[in-house]
């Protein structure tokens, strides 16, 4: 590839690429919105039975809550999410010293695995 060795500058080379990507994303968003438009919800009713369903990116949270009942709800609701956030923030400091990179990889891997698995699990139920 000859092009790859040619020196690139932010302007105009990279800027054009960024704008092209932005344009593609804009188009994709538009296509998605027209193909799958947002539906109107139902009016709030306090008498009709209703099982709450969160936005898809909170499905993992609702799913994890199911495993902690009663006095332990606190662990699923507050402690686990707090551990996720603190671990994520601390990644640069977890990756220090000999086996740092491995520790950090395991930490990130577990967080992402939790997110993906607990998002898919409830989706299988519906």
């Amino acid at each position: 590839m000859k092009e790859a060795t040619v020196e690139k500058k932010f302007y105009p080379d990279y800027l054009v690429e960024i704008l092209a990507v932005a344009l593609v994303i804009g188009m994709a968003t538009l296509v998605l919105s027209m193909s799958y438009p947002k539906e109107l919800g139902r009016r709030i009713s306090f008498s009709a039975p209703f099982s709450p369903k969160p936005e898809w990116f909170f499905l993992w949270f609702f799913e994890i809550l199911k495993y902690f009942k009663g006095n332990f709800a606190f662990i699923g609701a507050v402690v686990l999410p707090a551990i996720f956030i603190v671990t994520l923030v601390m990644i640069p400091f977890i990756d220090s010293g000999g086996r740092g990179r491995i520790r950090a990889t395991v930490a990130i891997g577990l967080i992402y695995l939790c997110f993906i698995v607990f998002t898919i699990l409830p989706a299988l139920d519906y």
Partner: peptide, 10 residues
């Protein structure tokens, strides 16, 4: 709406 209200309640 219904979904919003109950998801936020939980």
């Amino acid at each position: 709406d219904q979904k919003a209200y109950w998801a936020t309640t939980v």
